[in-house]
Design a protein around this nucleic acid. Structure first.
Lengths: 339, 339
DNA sequence: TTGTAAGCGTTATCAA
DNA sequence: TTGATAACGCTTACAA
């Protein structure tokens, strides 16, 4: 079997290439008879569209790029998978670009995506503010930013979970569970969303008249080194910490492992809550309270707005905030049932 | 900024398009002087290669497709991410096709990938034996099967973890930990790898003179319904089950949640071991023993052989088995320290 | 309703 | 060392 081209189909069905093209794309007029004839030949030959040629001609590739830091991360793979599913149903191909948080790799990927004439781009999270790096004009690719602030908001549509409120809810929950000295744990505060979560934490303390000071209310940890982290307990004890809001489940779950290594102090002495709502929450011991992000909604919105942007059906410069939910599990349970 | 083409670059640097192409691809001869001139213009204009045109002309797309059931699954996302990383370094783009285990979606994806003139394909796991569906001839796309048997072994290279030995090791470990009545738990045995794991379990029982019978040695569970599974305990009690080899960590971890819901019977009454070596093993309580798959090795081998296949540097019909490791954690610990 | 032909941006052949 | 040009497979005026 050779690779048939539209020209072969034209010859085999005794019509011109133009007609074949019209039939394939159901565009323009042709008789039912020719249509059947052509379709039959296409069926028989197993003809396959050549997208390179089509893209070249139409300057449109039916391809969407996704820039994502790390598909190993549950939240990212969840959202990517959902976006991909929706796009597939819309007949778009997806090129997933896993940057590994490497700025050079990101640049390089964007270069490649541009060269492939992608119709649109979805940027998920990441450290710096995002910019497509091209002079702002009609040639630039429509893109959507999820959980990552664009350098220029008028360039794009910004979609984000309500990180601030989520963090606020988490912190308030700790306080409601009688935590007097809650702190916020994180690995780094580089990303937009982490920064917002920390802000939410801070605001909640203030609203509850609890002193927030950078030195003692924030705890920077390195998950990699957590298992041989000697300084953790002294730090916690010094400030009488009885509640920890970790900015994501990854940090929270590792923290829990460490805290409970010798004695089970979560939730008895320290209550712990994470952020993301990942599956690991169910498996930790005790199970981990968390803030659940609505990835389904984020995925749907992202695709919807991107497609609208591509078809110029909506305007740039919008911001969409997606609500989050507090999921209460055992890691923040009160000590009613102490023996 | 318009999108510059090679023609623009040619004009701006006062040479022909042919020369520009030669410089860009460093192929053919040209003077150092022209090279510098052209490179300078490229730099200044921010010229970007048009891959559609290049692919169309060269019948080569510098793109590799990956067919994968579900990137939510840790093992898959791990391996996909590693493959993608290696391919990126080799200047290949990757199109990740998440089939959701949907046969029609898979077909549709393969159609699309063919239309994009992909240079090669990596197929990861999946239910049925894989076939590219094209008459076997020179036009077919080189592909690698990971953990999924090809319909025709002479068509491809088959790379797989040593599922059989892994399962054998897991089962032997249960027996070494004094389990007298081990069983094997799984959701379904559709995939090649699961079937092999069950085989390994079976053989190990036989080698240890433990009776294997389909009815009582195998336990089919539905993770979805596990939390309200009433029949689980009667089944286990009936056969005096004291050890469970679950064919993957996903099943194992959910099983553990269920088994320990009321009393902690793992590992005291029942020892439990999984397969995959996913991160969740560290978080379950008790931590989950498992068989670790060497995804790094699998990824490296896959890319290496695929590239060789593309460049006709190796031959079809090979099979590569990648060794696995037994990781012992608390879920299979013996009851020395009973109080 | 159908056909002809130009052109999308490359690479590669052939000639200079 | 360079340049002119055909060809890759497709869509789309424009013509018939």
């Amino acid at each position: 079997m050779k690779n048939y081209s539209i020209k072969d189909i034209a010859e085999l069905s005794g019509v011109s290439v133009a007609t074949v093209s019209r039939v394939i794309n159901d565009n323009g007029r042709f008789s039912e008879q020719t249509k059947q004839k052509v379709l039959k030949v296409i069926e028989e030959t197993g003809y396959n569209i050549n997208y390179s040629a089509k893209s070249l001609r139409m300057k449109k590739s039916f391809t969407i790029g996704i820039i994502v830091p790390d598909i190993q991360n549950y939240f990212f793979s969840d959202i990517v998978q959902k976006i991909e599913k929706i796009l597939f149903e819309l007949n778009y191909s997806t090129i997933i670009c896993n940057t590994g948080r490497d700025h050079k790799k990101e640049k390089s990927y964007i270069q490649m995506l541009k060269g492939r004439d992608i119709d649109g781009l979805i940027v998920i999270s990441g450290v710096e503010k995002f910019s497509l790096d091209s002079i702002h004009n009609e040639k630039s690719i429509p893109y959507i930013c999820i959980d990552r602030e664009p350098l220029d908001k008028s360039d794009t549509i910004f979609i984000s979970s309500d990180h601030f409120s989520g963090a606020y809810m988490a912190t308030q929950h700790l306080i409601d569970q009688h935590c007097l000295h809650p702190i916020c744990a994180f690995e780094n505060a580089n990303s937009t969303s982490t920064a917002q979560r920390i802000e939410g934490f801070k605001r909640c303390l203030e609203d509850n008249s609890i002193l927030f000071d950078k030195e003692n209310s924030l705890l920077q940890v390195s998950v990699q080194n957590l298992h041989n982290e000697e300084q953790l307990f002294p730090k916690l004890n010094k400030n009488n910490v009885d509640g920890i809001f970790a900015v994501n489940d990854y940090t929270a779950s590792h923290l829990m492992l460490n805290l409970n290594k010798k004695d089970s102090i979560v939730p008895k002495k320290i209550k712990l809550i994470g952020f993301d709502g990942s599956p690991v929450c169910e498996f930790t011991n005790p199970s981990l309270s968390s803030i659940h992000q609505d990835t389904e909604k984020i995925a749907i919105l992202s695709v919807e707005y991107l497609i609208n942007l591509i078809n110029k059906k909506t305007s740039y410069g919008q911001t969409k905030i997606v609500p989050v939910d507090l999921i209460i599990r055992k890691s923040t349970e009160m000590n009613n049932n102490l023996c």
